[in-house]
């Protein structure tokens, strides 16, 4: 059984967010890049667990971007991916990205494609669902558990105000969130081994883009905290009622 895990490079949570080119582009200079946490902690680690349990024979990674992505791909390989594919293109449009991944998934004979539930930078939550529609495979979104038995998957997913257990025949696309697996740290053997694992760079296939980022801006700075004395907590209630008008 073969799994394709989609990973994305995102700025570290603590990164300073600024923009360039008339506020049309995220300023990448000096930014620390990480693997999108949902892709890494949940999708990739669950794939590794499934491989460790003997059900899955190979984990392939896919990302879209330029050579700046290579360090995060190597990290994902160090954690436990077997080989990686990088689509050599630069795009923020979900449909374009999904079309690229779909092209690879179609010819790669995968049984399962895993994504994180969203990326922490653009929070699109779109790649998994688009990919499933392009491949005409079932899509399970916001999954918290995944087990495989022969060609059947059993999943628990979050639904509004609760959770739902589903059964579905492979191949499927799953978007993963907290609960799927626990974060891991690559060990030295993994890091050394990752250097020689295959990283294939492919040129993109022709695909449309449906959206484009027109402009970015930053929220207005907060006025600063208004402190209330611990001796008079009832004053806070008055402020929330009369000034902020939220209670």
């Amino acid at each position: 059984m073969k799994i394709l895990v989609c990973i994305s490079k995102t700025p570290d949570t603590t990164a300073k967010v600024t923009f360039t080119v008339n506020n049309t582009k995220f300023a990448e200079e000096g930014v620390q890049w990480i693997i999108n946490p949902y892709d890494e902690w949940y999708a990739l680690v669950r794939a590794i667990e499934l491989k460790e349990s003997g059900i899955v024979s190979a984990i392939h990674l896919i990302t879209l971007g330029n050579a700046d992505c290579d360090p995060i791909i190597r990290k994902a390989l160090a954690l436990g991916g077997d080989e990686a594919i990088r689509i050599n293109a630069d795009s923020q449009d979900s449909f374009y990205i999904a079309a690229q991944i779909a092209a690879v998934a179609k010819e790669g004979n995968y049984d399962l494609v895993l994504t994180g539930k969203e990326t922490i930078d653009y929070s699109g939550s779109a790649i998994g669902g688009m990919l499933a529609a392009l491949l005409e495979w079932p899509f399970i979104s916001h999954a918290t558990h995944l087990t495989l038995e022969n060609s059947q998957a059993t999943l628990v997913k979050e639904i509004e105000g609760g959770e739902q257990t589903d059964q579905v025949q492979l191949p499927i696309v799953v978007s993963c969130q907290k609960g799927m697996a626990e974060q891991r740290i690559p060990n030295m053997k993994g890091i050394m081994g990752a250097r020689t694992k295959t990283l294939t760079v492919r040129e993109p296939v022709a695909a449309d883009s449906f959206t484009s980022f027109v402009q970015f801006d930053l929220p207005a700075a907060k006025a600063g905290v208004k402190l209330v004395s611990a001796d008079h907590p009832e004053e806070l209630v008055r402020l929330l009622h009369e000034e902020a008008k939220v209670i």
Partner: peptide, 17 residues
Amino acid sequence: KAIAPGLSVLLKAGLVS
């Protein structure tokens, strides 16, 4: 979130979530 991305593909419609 489960519906909109698939709808985008089916209808060739741009999605902002």
